[in-house]
Amino acid sequence: MNTAHWLMERCGVPQAVVGDIVEEAVRRSSLWRWKQVAWAVWRALLSDATSHPVILIRGIAIGWFLLLPVSQAVLEWVWRAVNLRWILFVVHIGLRQHLNPLTGLLRTLLAVPLWIAVGWLVRRASASPTPAAVATVIGLMWAMAVPSYAHLVFNTIQHRRFLPYAIVNGISLAVVSASLLTGALWSSRTYATQ
């Protein structure tokens, strides 16, 4: 129950709802508990987004137009320092034919601290009891990534050589989303909601 507690507290689920789930979870299954937790978190995000649209839009705008481009610029700066050494390393270990997908994977992993920072800052910027702004930024990213990813998956079905790219892109999308969300949950304060 600790993880469920933590998640609900961090997502701004009202205290009365958390208390009811805690009270009732004793006599119910863990499936019941997680269904309740998922729905309570979703309701908290939705209610926050609909009741404070301006705050939400401010958080999204700061994340999308300021923090994401800045983090990309920082990543490029870091990447210039490691690029050549990375290529030599991949050639040295005999994986030259997989250089591009491996490079994509390394860039994603290097960017993890940046994504966490972006998630943290977006939530702080939206000053909201829930991570609704970050969840919306993640939703926007998925909406923009899915068409090209679907195209890549379609190409992979026809030509197996695209498989490493499809795997790496899928991992990247999941890692970026998880990092943003981690930053957002880490950034939260607990709010005394009723």
Binding site: H5, Q15, A16, V18, G19, D20, V22, E23, V26, Q194
Partner: peptide, 15 residues
């Protein structure tokens, strides 16, 4: 109305 916090609810009040 908000009730008193109870231990079986992890110290959270009922509404």
């Amino acid at each position: 109305r908000v009730g008193d916090p109870t231990p079986e609810r992890g110290g959270r009040a009922k509404k």
